[in-house]
Design a protein around this nucleic acid. Sequence first.
DNA 1: GCAAATGTTGGTCTCGTGACCAAGTCATGT
DNA 2: ACATGACTTGGTCACGAGACCAACATTTGC
Lengths: 206, 206
Amino acid sequence: MTYLSADERRRVIVDAAVRVIATEGLAGATTRRIADQAGVPLGTLHYCFRNKDELNLLILGRGHATMLSAFEGLDREAGFEATVREVVATYWRWIRDHHGLHLSLMELLMWAIRNKEAVLPGRDVWAEVNAPFGGDLIASALAAAAERDGLRTAVPVPELARFLIHRMDGLVLELAETSDEASCERQTLLLADALVLLALPRQGSG
Amino acid sequence: MTYLSADERRRVIVDAAVRVIATEGLAGATTRRIADQAGVPLGTLHYCFRNKDELNLLILGRGHATMLSAFEGLDREAGFEATVREVVATYWRWIRDHHGLHLSLMELLMWAIRNKEAVLPGRDVWAEVNAPFGGDLIASALAAAAERDGLRTAVPVPELARFLIHRMDGLVLELAETSDEASCERQTLLLADALVLLALPRQGSG
DNA sequence: GCAAATGTTGGTCTCGTGACCAAGTCATGT
DNA sequence: ACATGACTTGGTCACGAGACCAACATTTGC
């Protein structure tokens, strides 16, 4: 095994861990299996990480970062409706192509929620792990698009972003349960429609 | 310990298991803890259930049944919009008041998905566990309400029902992550609005 | 080119925990 | 009193986490 800096080695192990957890689930992602997948002895793993909690958090971070990268190709010139549809479609494609991983990230998220205090005493797991992703990227993309259109949305953009993100969370379960890609894809179209309708100023109310 | 029929004993244990899983999570719901909570020795638990998988499935079923009962008071005379809002509000109240349980049910669901073949070889976990709940109850309530209004929805009612159910799934995570009830409640209002907008026949398209 | 720091190996040990089972005991109806 | 079903006890077996270690390899600074 080649010589790597501890940082590089950590990267390699976390990558392997992401692979393991995507296929085996959180419960099946034992330190031994991860070490095995990374091609390093167990001792190395304990040399690189204080404990499994630390590793888990890094997996969560890496997973979200991977997801983030799916949104890099977003068209930053498009109008509001086009942007909504593009974000939803991109998100959907990512889930479809990585649903094992996304499911596991949800398991990890639940784990983090349940072990908040033990894992990150006093800190806000959610804000730390997710805000850079959902909170910023999607909300700001939508806000910028709305601004380009001179659109003052009927519902605040951050609320629309959360609506989008968490409907997609539901979709992960839906896909895992039914394995019906066509139906799930139809749901994403529905979601895009809904977001557009919610955003447009309405006749009836303010 | 009093003598009970095996069926009664099973009921008691499943009840205890639901309590344990709601507070400790799936990983923390060990046979020992469950037996402890039920006030029976560990052996009794293995006397009553073939194995833990069987118990898990029963917990899942009980959890969903509990949830089902929240919808018993639905107004079966109301129109479409009122029914949508009532279903969403009822669902939301249940989640808010039982979010530990709902979170655990999602963990169990993931477990069932990952162990499909081992647990229910050949059978469809999802259809068996969830269809009686979401698929039937909510979809049929909405369909009946639409019919009362003479409303031919722009989107098929079953799709609206799935949209509703899985947006609520996302909400469970959202609530667990943020603990921000007010924000989550606003999201439910948004969801109801979206469903109504999606259902109404639109000007632009067919 | 040498020494010190850093990373690697592979193995072992303990500790806790989890699922599960076999053989026994007890209650209850007949 | 005795058969049967209901429960108890005490254990087995497997496995994961985490810690430790002693020798070995590779860099890096000097």
